[in-house]
Amino acid sequence: MAVGDGGLPFPPPGPQFTPNQPNPSARRWPPKAVIIAASVAAALLLLCCGAAAVNAVIGDNKKNAAPGVSAAAATTTAATAPTSKVPSPAASLSASASPSAIAVTMPNLVGKNAAVAQDELKRLGLTKVQLGSQDPGDSMVILAANWTVTKQSQPAESQVTTDTLIVLTCTKKA
């Protein structure tokens, strides 16, 4: 406060407020108790969700473990348990083909919509299908419905097993 004539203080220019009257331009913040309660509630929520996520990731291994054995020990024991059967060379050669693989005739997919081609391969049981782009500006096929097949890794009418990788080269529709 400035001191006026006669040593008496005078108020600065502007709106005057009495001590019992709240300042209308001052921000009103929530009480500290509300802020603390909200923080505690948020921390508990994060803790519960985090624990559920960890249990979902790690909890599956405990189902197969024997009582009193940790999941890591059960996994290690199962992986390193000795086998009494010695594989023959013929068995290792036939192990490359999956026992559930079935031979199917590869269709001609050139000129078809990539999404339609994927569906057709899925109906035949071919699950290992990758789409690639031949366009220099587009390096990845993101939405197959916007692409057309220009080449296929396996020739049409050839016999392929259902576990064969099929690569369809595509171009983006104009």
Rank of each mutant, 00 (worst) to 15 (best):
A2M: 11
G4L: 05
G4V: 04
G7A: 09
G7H: 07
P9T: 09
P9D: 10
P11D: 10
P12L: 12
P12H: 09
P13T: 12
G14T: 07
P19M: 00
Q21W: 04
Q21A: 07
P24D: 12
P24Q: 10
S25H: 10
A26C: 01
A26V: 01
W29F: 11
W29V: 02
P31R: 13
K32M: 07
K32F: 06
A33L: 05
I35S: 11
I35H: 10
I35K: 10
I35Q: 11
I36A: 08
A37K: 09
A37T: 07
A37C: 02
A38F: 08
A38M: 10
A41S: 09
A41R: 03
A42F: 02
L45R: 06
L47C: 12
C48V: 14
C48P: 00
C49G: 08
A51M: 07
A52D: 05
N55V: 04
A56R: 14
V57Q: 14
V57A: 15
V57M: 12
I58T: 13
G59S: 03
D60P: 10
D60L: 07
N61W: 12
K63P: 00
N64D: 12
A65K: 02
A66T: 06
V69Y: 05
A72G: 14
A74N: 11
A74D: 09
A74P: 00
T75Q: 12
T75A: 13
A78G: 15
A79E: 13
A81Y: 10
P82D: 13
P82K: 15
T83F: 04
T83R: 13
S84W: 09
P87W: 11
P89R: 15
P89M: 14
L93N: 08
L93G: 11
S94R: 15
A95R: 13
A95C: 06
S100R: 08
A101C: 01
A101L: 00
I102Q: 04
A103K: 03
A103N: 03
V104A: 00
M106C: 01
P107R: 00
P107T: 01
N108E: 07
L109G: 03
V110T: 14
V110Q: 13
K112L: 15
K112H: 11
N113F: 04
N113I: 04
V116F: 06
A117K: 06
A117R: 03
Q118P: 00
Q118R: 15
D119A: 15
E120N: 03
L121A: 04
T127M: 08
T127E: 11
V129Y: 02
V129M: 08
Q130L: 12
L131E: 06
G132M: 14
Q134K: 15
Q134H: 13
P136S: 10
G137R: 14
D138N: 15
D138S: 14
S139D: 09
V141K: 02
L143F: 05
A145F: 01
T148C: 00
K151L: 08
K151S: 08
Q152F: 03
S153L: 09
S153T: 13
P155W: 02
S158R: 01
T161K: 12
T161F: 06
T162V: 02
T162Y: 00
L165W: 06
I166F: 00
V167H: 02
T171F: 01
T171D: 13
T171S: 15
